[in-house]
Design a protein around this nucleic acid. Structure first.
Lengths: 275, 275
DNA sequence: GCCTGTGAACGGCTTCACAGCG
DNA sequence: CGCTGTGAAGCCGTTCACAGGC
């Protein structure tokens, strides 16, 4: 779920994406097309990461899931996996999985399957996990505490390196080995620790203000847990995780299910969905 | 993000959301989202609540967001709001907003706008918020604690009415006024307290087991915070909120942005995306 | 005149089905 | 013969643009 000025949220979210989740605007072209004829690059640039050539947003979200499943597989010493197996474990159908993987290149072996380690490498590269991303958590209530204590987000590579709040009782103490700073220090601290991702876990009323500060400090990616739609410049990426929204979406499905049972007093069985 | 057997996540994430995302599926927003479980049917059925007539999953996620914004507006005594205003506040364009609202009926006044209270009512009805949903939280680590202490999820209507864990040190003590029960008691407790939504905040290794127990206890809606793809029967709705996935999606965008700057060594300014 | 509601056009994502290769 | 990789078809959601009321 990306929410940017004049655009859309959820997505889903997701699920989205959320999204949650999810699900929003234009795909991501390396561009370099349109404007110029474009046969160029590749050849010239060191084998120019031809990767990242227009991967649909929805596919990106799934790639992250595949990565998770592949890590599990690797932990169990599975060296090779077929599209069918991986798809089942990730909860998608195999055609979609193969299509998704094809966006990042051809790393499978026909008649055999995919090498787990290779896929992990390539998906990681595509998702930009080769660089480390410093994370700042702002707002240390219940949720903020939980996030801070994750101590380096699950799926390593996202070390939390700064904590902020306004509560004088919190400033200066350490949480998970990190000192808590006042949000007035966001510019300085974010600068010196090279923070690239901001996580907002403040009460709703403070979220926009905090967001503005982060943006002013140069943070261009924000994960927002506050139940507020943040207004940001076009070059800032926001993803929103909203528990109330998630619950309401579930609620909708409960209601729909109930309606169905009520109205379908007749024969027809729910043969819905099934890929 | 809806994930069901043989279907897709993110979501939004969401799509997300979720959700999603996306996020979805998903995504978180998270996910991405997406995945419309509602196929054809209806039609024949009497004239039955013609509402719930195939509302796109993505639209459902956004309706929840509109509801949030509308509540804020109501709190500030705004009685009427135009599609343009509401859209701006929700971060979508007005055409999409009007289309979304049209799915639930015609509650606006041409030349004027929408009555805030009426919209709140109708969206709430559509999302099934007229019924109360009892929530059970399983797994009381950092995140679970945070969720339990929310004490009735934000956006009222989702009272947490049961807590479960396996840690003997936790069983029996009270958190936010609720006693912690052992997960062996899930069937009984969920039954007597009429739990309709299960929230899984356990370590990844325990998630599937806990999920199976909830499902066996009759819970048909699950919000999963564990970084695992749950396998469930077709009639169970799962939404996944995965912090690692959200971070990785953000990471992808950071990387893409960096690539752009690197390859666009020339003139062309980033005029991308735009609402 | 203004703003809502909506059919139709558009575009992106998913699904299909098979060609291609090991 | 099996499984990947992918053009093409189909579907679904978004955007457009204007008809319809107030």
């Amino acid at each position: 779920m990306v929410a940017r000025r004049g655009d859309d949220p959820a997505g889903d979210s997701t699920g989205d994406g959320v999204v949650h989740p999810s699900m929003d605007d234009a795909p991501y072209a390396l561009d370099g097309d349109l404007t110029n004829g474009a046969p160029l690059l590749d050849a010239v640039v060191p084998a120019a990461r031809e990767r990242a050539r227009a991967i649909p947003e929805a596919a990106v979200a799934r790639l992250a899931v595949y990565l998770q499943v592949l890590s599990e597989a690797a932990a169990q010493d599975t060296a090779v996996i077929s599209s069918e197996e991986l798809a089942a474990a990730a909860g998608v159908n195999s055609a979609k999985l193969r299509k998704d993987l094809s966006y990042i290149g051809s790393y499978g072996t026909r008649g055999v399957g995919y090498d787990v380690e290779t896929l992990i490498q390539e998906i990681g590269r595509t998702l930009g996990l080769t660089r480390k991303h410093s994370v700042a958590v702002v707002g240390l209530g219940n949720l903020g505490h939980a996030l801070a204590n994750y101590g380096g987000f699950p799926g390593r590579g996202f070390p939390v390196s700064a904590l902020f709040d306004v509560d004088p009782d919190l400033i200066g103490i350490k949480l998970g080995g990190l000192p808590v700073d006042h949000i007035d220090d966001i510019p300085e601290v974010c600068g010196t620790r090279d923070v690239t991702v901001g996580v907002i876990a403040t009460p709703p009323g403070a979220a926009q203000e905090v967001c503005d500060r982060l943006v002013r400090a140069g943070v261009r990616c924000i994960l927002n847990f506050a139940p507020v739609v943040l207004q940001v410049p076009d070059d800032v990426e926001v993803r929103k995780v909203d528990l109330a929204v998630e619950m309401q979406i579930l609620s909708f499905h409960v209601a729909r299910r109930a309606d169905r049972l009520a109205t379908d007093g007749d024969s027809r069985v729910d043969q819905a969905v099934g890929q």
